[in-house]
Structures are given as C-alpha cells and as structure tokens.
Design a protein around this nucleic acid. Structure first.
Lengths: 136, 136
DNA sequence: CGTTGACCTAGACCCGGGTCGAGCATCTAA
DNA sequence: TTAGATGCTCGACCCGGGTCTAGGTCAACG
C-alpha cells in the first residue's frame, strides 16, 4: 500500500518537480530546504506536500537567477520561524528588483538583436551583394 | 603621438568596453572575433574600430545569455565572408527566440515573486501573528 | 641608467551549479 | 532465491566563463 499522498519519496518528488535525485540531495546538503527533510525508518527521505511547495518556489527563484546561497539565506530565515518576516520581505523585494532589472536588460538586448535581424532581412530581401559586417 | 583613433591598444579597448584584458584575450583565443586581431611590430594587439563594434555586439549577445560557443559560430560565419547571410540570420533569429522565451520565463517568475511579496506585505501590515510559510 | 608601466604567453586556479559513480541496503516480483 | 528497482552516502568529475600568476619584452620617463 502507498503512504498518504503528502508523504513522498525522492523519486516521486523528482517526477513532480523535474529535478533529478542528485539535485534534490544537493539542495538538501546546501541547506535550501526550509524544514529538515524527514527520513523514514530506513533512512530514506520523506517529503511532505509543503516541502514540495517550497521546492516549487525554490525552482522559481532559481529560474529567475537567484543563487543557491540566497535561497539558503531565505530558507534559514524561514527555519528560524516567526519574527523575521520583514527580513524575508526585504530579501524578496531585492530579488524582485534584480529580476526587473534583468528583464530590462534582456529587453534592451532584444532591441539590438531585432535591429540586426532587420538589417539581415533587408540585405537578403534585396539580394544585396557586399559583406554586411566585415572589416571595412 | 597617438595612433589613429581606430587603432586601439588592448588597454584602450578595456576602457571602452569594460571588459578585462584577460577576458579580451580569452575571447580571442576562443575565436569570438570576426576578424583576426592584428598585431603591431612588437606583437601587441591592435584593435580597429570595427573590432570594438563587433565586441559590443558580442557583449550584447553575452548579456542576453548567448554562450561563447554560439558567438564563435557566428563569428566563423562572418569570417567566411559573403554568402552565408541566411545562416547568420537563422542563428540570430534563434537567439532572438531564446531571449523572448527567457523574458517570458522571468516575467512568470516575477508574478510569483510579486505574489509572495504581497503576502508578506499584508502579513506585516496587519501585525499578523502565526508563521507564514512554515510546516503545517 | 634604472625603474615603471603596458603589454605578451602559457597555464593554473576558481566558482557556481550540477552530474555521475562506486559500493551498499532494502524491498518486491518472477 | 535471485534479479531489478529504488534508495543511501561520499566523493569525484564536468562545464562555462572567467580571473590570476609567473616570467618575459619593450619603450619611455626622471
């Protein structure tokens, strides 16, 4: 029989999150979890539903460029429990700003790339001879 | 006296681009330049204005997440000269798509982060007790 | 003169973030 | 009962992208 739906093995968590077992164990070693990952009688990891929820946030943080070290700091704050919410908020806001910045940077790059794409399109459209972008 | 404005030393290029000498030399070794970097009589690098222009594009590519290997492929195409513009265009378009994707991903992350920021703000605003985001 | 500063090469090192493998334990199904 | 999954730990490895060092050349300045 299977355990309660919120008692997941590492393999199940992999399946749900797309992370590899290796990565999951790495994250644990690196202290990214906001609560000790429990073990069953045989020493195997047991993840709860909220461990997974937390992981999903971690994945968002990663996908938005937050380094593991920052996630660890955040996790530590959560582990310490009630009372430091303003610090957590500060951290989140700082990361938010980084992400906004990054989007702006990418958008600026995109404009440049689009410009160059336009140049090439035009060049090709008119079967233009002569090198685009070569030494003068 | 100084050389023509378009004949730059590596140090001058660093100053103009913000890249370190190390990085500039690395980029050259890695074949990122679209034209051989010339040398003066003493073996010192001499950069032309368009080398710098090219570098500026490279920096945009990097900033938008293009790996060095891809920049190298692009540079090779340019080095080969006239005739492969459609391939270059394809490469640029593919990268463009990657960037657009990435912006979308970041925007999605931003929403999640903003949501969590909102949760914390509310929590703090009402001096709420009880842990936000702790094991149930 | 000698020292200072900009440059050269080759190669080592570093960091972040995984990814993999060896060697072992346990459960399950054929 | 034995093979196959699945899990465990620990430590090695890998990759991308720099960054730094040692040891050397040269020109110009005081």
């Amino acid at each position: 029989m299977t355990a309660a739906a919120s008692e997941l093995t590492i393999g199940q968590v992999c399946a749900r999150t797309g992370l590899s077992v290796h990565t999951l164990r790495l994250y644990e070693r690196e202290g990214l979890f906001a609560g000790e990952v429990r073990r069953d009688g045989r020493g195997r990891r047991v993840y709860s539903a909220w461990d997974v929820e937390w992981l999903e946030y971690c994945m968002r943080f990663r996908a938005s460029g937050m380094p593991l070290a920052t996630i660890r700091r955040f996790a530590e704050l959560v582990r310490q429990g009630v009372g430091n919410e303003h610090i957590r908020l500060k951290l989140l806001r700082e990361h938010r700003d980084v992400v906004v910045e990054r989007i702006a940077e990418l958008s600026a790059c995109l404009e440049v790339i689009d410009f160059k794409v336009g140049v090439y399109e035009e060049h090709l459209a008119q079967g233009n001879a002569g090198d685009l972008w070569g030494p003068p």
